[in-house]
Amino acid sequence: MRARDKAAVSALRVTLAALDNAEAVPVDEADAHGPAIEQSPTGAGTTEAPRRELSEHEMATIVRAEADERLEAAAQLTSPAHAPRATRLRTEAEVLLRLLDERDGAP
């Protein structure tokens, strides 16, 4: 990907963040108030939080939701003053949908 393809880079960054957030395991309220700091474990790996592994279907659903979100936002921007932003959102959605098409084997 060319470095100057800002719409693609933006869409991919936000989508990667959405995937990363989806992998997060919900924190139980009881776990949020752990032991006192002096009783906390130390050493390598003690700050690692558990992550869940997304299936390919879950990842595709998230990517499709990100594309749909951009298309909906672009549809809301009807003012001529917002035309450049709407165009950028549509371009970002196209990038994401193209990735899904490539994944599904479409040309």
Rank of each mutant, 00 (worst) to 15 (best):
S40Q: 14
A86I: 07
A73W: 02
R70T: 04
T78H: 08
A32T: 08
S79G: 01
T47I: 05
R85L: 12
R64D: 14
D31N: 08
D31M: 03
E58H: 03
S40N: 06
E56M: 06
A49W: 00
R85Q: 12
V63Q: 01
A83E: 11
M59Y: 04
M59G: 14
A44R: 04
E58I: 04
R70M: 15
E48G: 02
E29I: 04
P80E: 10
A75F: 01
G45W: 00
H33S: 11
I62Q: 11
E29P: 00
H82R: 07
L71R: 15
P84S: 07
Q39S: 12
H82G: 11
R70G: 07
A73R: 13
Q39P: 00
L89S: 01
D31W: 04
G34I: 12
P41R: 09
T78A: 04
A44I: 12
D68Y: 12
E53Y: 01
A74S: 07
I37D: 13
A81H: 15
A73G: 02
A49F: 00
Q76R: 07
I37G: 03
T87A: 15
E58Q: 13
A93N: 02
A67H: 09
E66M: 11
V95Q: 03
T87I: 05
A44H: 05
E92L: 02
